[in-house]
């Protein structure tokens, strides 16, 4: 069941820069670029343990966090990462901006851009919003979640957390359980984990499994025990009630009974399996409280690692390569 041979960065595969000036999705990244980001994040993580948690690397750079959806974790994480690198940051939330007066995304971005920022971190409810911005803006665009498309920094911090515990990604069985249809976290994670050689199983109610999922090179099932059996990593996805129009399953209680991660179900996984969740958690829906708070849970590690991973992305993109350059 071993995947492709690219296990981890070695001298011959190592690259020292990203090809694009934007981070729009994991789909665009080569495995060596993913390794570069994760290796850089390891160096960044140490900065968080210093008495003075700040380095001068992004001094004089301005980063705009443009958020069209509610977010606590991701926005805070980006802002802390930016501040630890000494960038100047500014936050725009759609509810308090001209968006409510009817301005389009592109117009808002062009107006922000007229004030000369260097990077824009964008979260938006529409899939493809970051690609749109990258075509009209000169600034580097970092995708902080666009609709049901991608959430690349979440997948990177998940990979960083797995690598921290399991040393490598290649050859691991990763079970991802939950709302597969509406999840941008799932799409980014599938791209990343399959590129790095993990064996990915996805599981959810048949109504929440995208019909074309197999073309991404993953195993899809609605049998939770099959997905979890001998897994090294069990990742749960939030049931996104706000994105559901119509009935995908009978009730939340029913969902928990069939797919909820309990200690009993977890026993089928490897004894040293870890439990992950991108948050926010619905306790008693996709995850039982005793699992969320259990010793195998790395859910808070994921949050802590998010800062280091975002610092790495900001640093690597701040060089501002204007054109795609092969290295």
């Amino acid at each position: 069941m071993s995947g492709p041979v690219i296990a981890r960065v070695d001298e011959t595969l190592a690259v020292t820069s990203l090809r694009s000036k934007n981070l729009l999705g994991i789909a665009d990244l080569a495995p060596e670029e993913i390794s570069l980001i994760l290796d850089t994040a390891e160096a960044m993580k140490e900065i968080g343990s210093r008495p003075i948690k700040k380095v001068p690397a992004l001094r004089g750079k301005t980063v705009v966090n443009l958020f069209y959806e509610p977010s606590t974790r991701t926005r805070t994480s980006f802002e802390i990462a930016e501040k630890r690198l000494s960038a100047d940051t500014l936050n725009i939330a759609s509810v308090s901006s001209s968006v409510v007066k009817g301005e389009t995304l592109a117009d808002t971005a062009l107006n922000i851009e007229a004030m000369q920022p260097d990077m824009i971190v964008l979260r938006h409810p529409s899939s493809g919003a970051c690609h749109l911005l990258s075509r009209v803006c000169r600034s580097a665009i970092i995708n902080a979640g666009d609709g049901m498309h991608e959430h690349p920094t979440q997948a990177l911090l998940d990979a960083f957390t797995i690598r921290e515990r399991k040393k490598q990604l290649a050859g691991l069985k990763v079970a991802i359980v939950g709302d597969l249809l509406h999840s941008r976290v799932l799409r980014s994670n599938i791209h990343l984990l399959t590129k790095m050689g993990a064996d990915v199983w996805v599981c959810g109610p048949p109504t929440l499994i995208p019909t074309d999922i197999a073309r991404f090179g993953v195993h899809a099932t609605s049998a939770i025990d099959e997905a979890v059996a001998d897994a090294d990593v069990v990742m749960l996805l939030r049931i996104q009630l706000e994105r559901m129009e119509g009935a995908f399953f009978p009730s939340l209680r029913e969902y928990f009974n069939v797919f909820g991660m309990t200690e009993a179900r977890l026993r089928r996984a490897k004894p040293d399996a870890i439990i992950m969740h991108p948050g926010p958690m619905n306790r008693g829906v996709e995850i039982a409280s005793e699992v969320a708070d259990g010793p195998y849970s790395v859910i808070l590690d994921q949050v802590a690692n998010g800062v280091a991973v975002r610092m790495a992305v900001l640093y690597l993109l701040a060089g501002g390569a204007e054109h795609e350059t092969a290295t």
Binding site: T16, M44, E46, P56, L85, A312, Y315, A321, T325
Partner: peptide, 25 residues
């Protein structure tokens, strides 16, 4: 000590790869 993030030539070149950051311990 890795001094990369303190270099005075960081971000001076608008185009080009960023220097590799290694771990400070």
């Amino acid at each position: 000590l890795d001094i990369t993030l303190y270099r005075d030539d960081l971000m001076r070149h608008t185009v080009g790869p960023q220097p590799l950051v290694r771990r400070t311990e």
